[in-house]
Design a protein around this nucleic acid. Structure first.
Lengths: 340, 340
DNA sequence: GTGAAAGCGCTAACAA
DNA sequence: TTGTTAGCGCTTTCAC
């Protein structure tokens, strides 16, 4: 009955014909050009509704020379760290009439490069979150002249717009806090080797040695599971203070300590990093460093939008962090380590 | 030096000319059509590399009549529930040479509808995760003939492919577990009113009354914060068993109980839902219901791919869940409630 | 096996 | 203010 012809969608031409106007007039109405006669415009608008016409995105993209899309590449979509960023970015994108294309590199540097390429083809600008790809690849991408922003990855001598979180200061604050509590040594449960985030934390740990706070490192990871697994090793080292790569690791370690009957913070102090929501609801609440992920995503999105509008900025931006002192840290006990 | 002309990207025509072949031949090589002479193909391939040519996605999309994109709409990008789904979907998409466009409706039914419209224009198929929009809107979208899959939303009498998690059975299992432990009543910290997920849980709670397990409800929400805030009210009700809408709520409540000195599970049993990673690392570990979010995302993606290939399925799929009994539940204490 | 050319649906000069 | 038309860059018949 109603179904006349399958397959072919109604085009701008159909609307024009039905409304007794020209294609360009319809296009004008569609794009809000107000040089169109009010009555005609209204007629066109009505026809559009009647015919249920929707502009073809590909055709618009081709004609306009832009897709109206922002691409984001993250190392791991399942990592909550990127969700708040993604959400903020998505908001910015929408605010500027754009859409967001996401890709997950699975922490694979090679894939990362491939996907970034594909992302460029399909978007007007891309955001690379904590990219692990080699400097050369990053350089090549940057020289492509496609709007691009990178977060949490410092690459010296490269003209690319980076927005980085001051992990160094954050970790330094953690160390300072622990040192002032009376700790002389910490055990660091380290994160992903290839990440700049981990490198910065290590750099801060080293810097803290200037204040007499030494540290030892245990390879760990970035998940609660990794923290749970690595915790005993920290105990074996006679740790009185454990600094985790992030909150997940800390939460995992905390669970293990609890399982083992080691009290936090009485017997051992523990810190996280990132300031995820759950950190606050742990028992004890986790001392951590709040990283404004939402801000990071927003800044990146805004920078991207600016670039897409022609601005060519390469000034790196820095995002500050804040130490959140909570219940998981305290002065070290007199003696007798938890285990050995 | 190297920079010859700004602005114009190299096109397939440039490659053709440079390689001394025709546009169609280049196109064939690009698309892996093997009726091309090996030598010529190789020459073309080389030229492509030399010129650094990349096909224009919009043009391909227009000519092919498809964008190679899958759109996903979630109520809240910051909600971890969707991350695993998104990741799985992203994997499936990539496996089929497609990309993923994400949008966040901010839990707003109206926005949801608008965004879904936009998503359709820009993709070959869309996935609506736990849509809150009115049935009529959903129906309208479904009749558009665009590949579409919906998760966690049952709409009777509508030809749409839905993939739903068996929340009912999951909650029933929780109730059964509690009942067998000896509990006669539970307090339910309820989730988002508009969500089907919450409705199903309530339905199960009601069904459990057939076994003599009564329940009272406290409006709560879906976050740890909400759980933390609502916990005291449960205590006021003299609860011996608290069933939370999800793990976040449970974790928040657990934190509050701990703060208040109420021991879990000795004085009060507590259950979560979803089976997020952190549930396992709480103290005590949370009894919860594992929801295979990754599977959900994968099934949705696969169904979408099938639809995009012509299949027109409307058979709803159901995803099973599993009760994970851990340390947060136990038999109720002899008497003397935690508070009053 | 290869090339010419007709679209794909829309935007944006350019005319009128 | 409105219409005509030339692209946008690629895919895909249809001849050769």
């Amino acid at each position: 009955m109603t179904t006349t012809n399958r397959k072919r969608r109604t085009t701008i031409g159909d609307v024009a014909r039905a409304a007794g106007a020209s294609i360009s007039t319809v296009s004008r109405v569609l794009n809000g050009v107000d040089s169109v006669d009010a009555a005609l415009a209204e007629r066109v608008r009505q026809t559009i509704v009647e015919l249920g016409y929707r502009p073809n995105a590909a055709a618009q993209g081709l004609a306009r020379g832009r897709s109206g899309t922002i691409g984001v590449l993250v190392p791991d979509l399942a990592n909550p760290y990127f969700h708040d960023m993604l959400k903020a970015l998505s908001d910015v994108a929408r605010g500027s009439g754009r859409r967001v294309l996401v890709m997950d590199s699975g922490e694979d540097p090679y894939e990362e490069r491939e996907l970034a390429d594909d992302l460029i083809r399909h978007s007007d600008g891309i955001l690379l979150c904590s990219p692990r790809m080699p400097r050369a690849d990053l350089a090549e991408l940057a020289h492509r002249g496609h709007p691009m922003v990178v977060t949490n990855r410092v690459v010296l001598g490269l003209e690319l717009h980076a927005i980085n979180v001051d992990f160094f200061r954050g970790m330094l604050a953690v160390c300072g806090h622990l040192a002032q509590l009376g700790h002389r040594e910490v055990v660091y449960l380290s994160g992903p080797e290839a990440s700049w985030a981990n490198a910065e934390r290590l750099r801060a740990l080293s810097a803290a040695e200037d204040f007499g706070l030494t540290f030892r490192t245990i390879p760990c990871g970035a998940t609660a599971e990794a923290g749970y697994e690595a915790a005993p090793a920290a105990l074996d080292l006679g740790a009185r203070a454990v600094v985790a790569y992030n909150d997940f690791v800390a939460l995992g370690a905390l669970a293990r300590f609890t399982d083992l009957g080691v009290r936090v913070p009485e017997e051992i102090s523990l810190t996280g990093f990132d300031g995820i929501g759950m950190a606050r609801y742990a028992s004890p609440a986790l001392t951590t460093v709040a990283v404004p992920r939402e801000l990071l995503g927003r800044l990146a999105g805004e920078a991207l939008v600016r670039q897409m509008q022609g601005a060519s900025e390469v000034e790196p931006e820095a995002v500050a962090v804040e130490l959140l002192v909570r219940g998981s840290t305290a002065a070290p006990m007199r003696r007798e380590p938890a285990s050995s």
